[in-house]
Amino acid sequence: MANTLTKPQLLGRGLLSQNPIFKLALSMCPAVGMSTTVMTGLMLGCAVLFVQVFSSLTIALFKRQIHPRIRIPTYTLVIATWVTVIDLVLAAVFPAAYAQMGIFIKLIVAFAIITMRLETFACKESVPDSFVDAVGMGFGFMFGMVVIGFVRELLGSGTILGYDVLGFKPFMFFILPCAGFFVVGLMMAFFNWIEQKYRERMANKS
């Protein structure tokens, strides 16, 4: 099955119209659990981008050799291999950040978004297209994490990336662990509301 979208379209799809966090609602665990600051979101985003790109490339390269009946275990093992790589690298190079993210780096292996991209895209399309799609999805995930982290860090502790911006702390509530659910829920509702208004305006114009 040939892909009809151009490369910029593929890239933009992951960032906006099929954003893994806000649109596909996959990989919600890190979006709720690991988004208290912009920095952790950025770090985890980088790790996911790495795993997504390399597993997509691996599957796209070997797609002819993989028997369809055992494809899911194959995907899982490929992802697990790349997760082990990034896990060991982070533990060696950035021990402080690694300690902060704790078990979540290892849990990338069970993030639905990566398996889903392999299943719906990389196992059918060419290697360059899979690469662009994986980069788009990875950056889409990172974008979502950074946006949620931005809101929570700004409102919770009045800082951005550790720099004091506001000078006061508006709502301590937002850095509480369980506030993640509320922030994600409210942001989803906000995006729905914007989309709804936009559609109404479009309908009025025509």
Partner: peptide, 23 residues
């Protein structure tokens, strides 16, 4: 429920309340 909260958004907020209760 308000139109824009239907589906997942309200489910997240409910889960947040459960999380507060489990605290």
């Amino acid at each position: 429920i308000p139109e824009s909260f239907k589906g997942l958004p309200i489910a997240f907020i409910t889960a947040g309340q459960f999380a507060l209760a489990f605290l």
